[in-house]
Design a protein around this nucleic acid. Sequence first.
DNA 1: CAAACCGGCTGTATCGTTTCAGTATAATCG
DNA 2: CGATTATACTGAAACGATACAGCCGGTTTG
Lengths: 344, 344
Amino acid sequence: MMDKPDKDFDTAASSAERPTLKTIAFMTGLGITTVSRALKDAPDIGHETKERVRLVARQIGYQPNRAGVRLRTGKTNVISLVLSLEEEIMGLTSPLVMGISEILAGTPYHLVVTPYRTANNPLDPIRYILETGAADGVIISRTEPRDARVALMMERNFPFVTHGRTVMGLEHPFHDFDNERFAYEAVRKLAERGRRRLMLLEPPPHLTFNVHMRTGFERGVRDFGGTIIPFSQVNLDSSLPDIRAACERVMQSSDTPDGIVSGSGSGAVALIAAVEGSGRRIGHEIDIVSKEPSTFLQWLRPEVSTMREDIRLAGRELAKAVIGRIDGRPASELQTLSYPIPTD
Amino acid sequence: MMDKPDKDFDTAASSAERPTLKTIAFMTGLGITTVSRALKDAPDIGHETKERVRLVARQIGYQPNRAGVRLRTGKTNVISLVLSLEEEIMGLTSPLVMGISEILAGTPYHLVVTPYRTANNPLDPIRYILETGAADGVIISRTEPRDARVALMMERNFPFVTHGRTVMGLEHPFHDFDNERFAYEAVRKLAERGRRRLMLLEPPPHLTFNVHMRTGFERGVRDFGGTIIPFSQVNLDSSLPDIRAACERVMQSSDTPDGIVSGSGSGAVALIAAVEGSGRRIGHEIDIVSKEPSTFLQWLRPEVSTMREDIRLAGRELAKAVIGRIDGRPASELQTLSYPIPTD
DNA sequence: CAAACCGGCTGTATCGTTTCAGTATAATCG
DNA sequence: CGATTATACTGAAACGATACAGCCGGTTTG
């Protein structure tokens, strides 16, 4: 039967097993406590001892057991990226994840993706994280002006950062793209081409950047002249076929635009299809300015004027901000804005 | 100074703190062990007792402490998605992550994104996970025919799934898109339009699906007739400007194609730009067939024939496969293929 | 009728780490 | 010189969960 496994020769120095503090303690002849404190550079450990411990630790490739640390201290070394499962529509998740990962790679933090269905309460994942202590910090997007998630995490004093700003008189870390500027510059471009009847494919109304983009748009129209063609039946969250259909309807109405601003690259695709479907040619009867995440439009429709939003950068900034917050830096130092990048 | 925190009224039943087994044990009057075993539906616990425990647990919203479980059992409840930081190029990370999350949402598993730089050894993240026991299962992509990561994980008998197949006589879980079929059908389409001088923008040579796609392409050319215009200076990993430049060169040479197959949507964009830049019109002097991840091309260049690859589905299949493997199901049951989706 | 068995429950040890409250030795002080 | 203090180190307890080896009262068995 020979069932008894010949374990427990692991008094300390076994080689196959993963090294722990105990292993180092045995090898150096020190106590576990001493090793622990030496590795954290505590002031009450002798200099030479620290050196010795560090050397051994490096040699045997010691890495603290995450479960042990987490159980004892509550520190998870996890950053949670909270995403709507439907977010894909905008396809901006890839670069965001990459940007975050890039920063986290140099830290002990792991990135955990925590999804939720927009149908459900977006507070659910936040509650989960708060209640179970699943992460040390959270990154959220689709930020609303009065965002319940922000309120909740502020109240609990939990480190987080938002992709997008809020309007609730609470100081918290954020990174945002200057959508107001984008829209303003977009209108300027259209005006320069003599366009006067302007239309905006806007962000979903409940999200903060809806206000920003519309503000920029309206300010542009005011400053550069023109009229606004309403187009609020659809928004950037609408399906592309819906956007296309809505745009086709407008193009067949009596009140048609000669300039369109699109808040996203994929939205622009639908608009282009609709516009061209109506027999109009971009650059001739009508102009379009779009935000472009990658390099698509620029090549397929050079007539469409674009400005880039660097989402990977956003990821990096967001990661730096949460970590900053976890490290106790004040929120006011962790608020950054990025600007439209010209794509000539 | 009133510094002493009034903790430790937590003998068991405190309400603010997160409930543990101890809490339930106190409330039910049972031992901690009993509660633990009752919740796992162990056979040696009375029926009524189980009911009682379950009821209380549900009432107070008990959730096992992950660190506790992990420390004791080694079970992490983590699935690690190992990604190249440069993978973004193909932009397929979003839907992949969404698909995986969708499945994981119904399980205790969390999704951790583990990045690496392609410059470094792709084995690094695998070694890290293996050595630190950072996950219960791994999902890898950019699979090679003789993939060292696969060999390593098989040897250690560690649960994983590959996005793409290998050719090393080892039976392991995978999900793959039938790129051979895709290329074959692509050639068929071109042939139907009378195209005879065919060119393929192929996957990176070291990845398995390079072989698949080329096999399908070559089989198609053989079956439907035509000649192959070599185009191996660039591949799907090349930058779009590089692809464009290479394609422009070909279009100016004496040996020009009249039909092109593109292994990716973004690659197609570069090809289109080059082709049109050379004065040729798609659908007239030349035809292009492309794989399309989203709905872009179809609308901007309806002349380009496309077939969709459902990456979100891939994410779902991959997630199901790792979990299956973790649950001990044989690899042979966890191998799936998905097929090109016509985009009419 | 003692022995074996069974159902249902529980105490203890353990995973790896950190915190707390020390201890031992040597140096400093009045 | 005894008492204080600093320096360098250490054992025990705890975080929450699970595996293991019991325990106890009652029934079956030979």
